[in-house]
């Protein structure tokens, strides 16, 4: 039987090593930003992969999120609470938490795992070694374009998702508590703060970098054939989800104290 102290120690060491390697990869990627003009075609291609191909999933997820919020908030409100409050509650819930967090988790599954699978397949078929042999830096060619594309695409997708969610929320509130459009707008106008939009953009940008970076890292370190590629996609999703949830709390707390 294994000594539990040794097992915990080994896992902790692996965890810290992996986070250290991800941090190094992040710095290498930042250094690679100087090559943006060289790899512009790859960045445009990756933007299309991330943004355009994620739209259908984002619409479905955001609609579901809006409908659920509309029902849950509407049914929780008692008779003494003005109905128009729901507009503001939906707006702030979507902008501050549900939009960036749920979309980051959804996109982590679609985009992050997809990147891990693609780069993992490249790793196990020696395509990444071939890049290095041909003097092409894999970080510049594979990681940097995905991160740069994600820096733009993820906030765009999240803002788009938030609009869809808010509209779905209104439809849901209309059928749940018969809230009028004017009432919904009144609630949103009273609750609106531009800082909420900034918070949403900050979170979505950071979350986007996190799941793309983890996708790249686990893909590029995939081992042992098909099993290794499968494992890399799972690890990318699990690690980025945990990191996103922890970061969501940290960013929310920091922004709460700042604003």
């Amino acid at each position: 039987m294994r000594n539990p102290v040794v097992t915990v120690g080994r896992n902790a060491a692996r965890f810290m090593t992996a986070y250290g390697q991800v941090t190094i990869l992040l710095f290498q990627t930042l250094v690679a930003f100087r090559k943006i003009p060289t790899y512009l075609p790859q960045i445009v291609e990756q933007y299309s992969n991330i943004e355009r191909r994620s739209r259908p999933l984002v619409i479905v997820a955001a609609s579901a999120m809006g409908f659920i919020l509309g029902i849950q908030i509407g049914t929780q409100m008692d008779a003494a609470t003005p109905k128009w409050y729901e507009g503001g509650l939906i707006l702030r819930s979507v902008l501050l938490e549900m939009g960036p967090l749920i979309m980051a988790l959804v996109l982590s599954g679609r985009v992050g795992s997809g990147i891990a699978a693609e780069l993992g397949a490249m790793q196990v078929t020696e395509q990444i070694d071939a890049l290095r042999v041909m003097a092409v830096d894999p970080v510049e060619f594979l990681v940097m374009p995905r991160i740069v594309a994600g820096l733009v695409a993820v906030p765009v997708l999240v803002i788009f998702a938030e609009l869809v969610a808010i509209l779905s929320g209104y439809v849901s509130a209309y059928f749940t508590i018969h809230l009028s459009w004017d009432g919904f707008m009144k609630g949103m106008t009273r609750a609106f703060a531009i800082t909420d939009v900034f918070a949403s953009l900050i979170k979505s940008t950071i979350f986007g970098v996190v799941f793309i970076l983890f996708g790249c890292f686990f893909g590029m370190t995939a081992k042992r054939g098909a099993k290794g590629v499968g494992s890399s996609t799972t690890l990318a999703f699990v690690w980025s989800s945990v990191a996103i949830l922890v970061l969501d709390y940290v960013i929310s707390a920091v922004l709460f104290f700042i604003w």
Partner: peptide
């Protein structure tokens, strides 16, 4: 370093991988 390797070695040396390793 990787960049020195690129400049001094890989500019004059190429490798053909077992499965081809073409970028698909």
């Amino acid at each position: 370093s990787e960049s020195e390797y690129n400049d001094r070695v890989r500019s004059r040396m190429s490798m053909i991988f077992q499965q081809g390793a073409l970028w698909d």
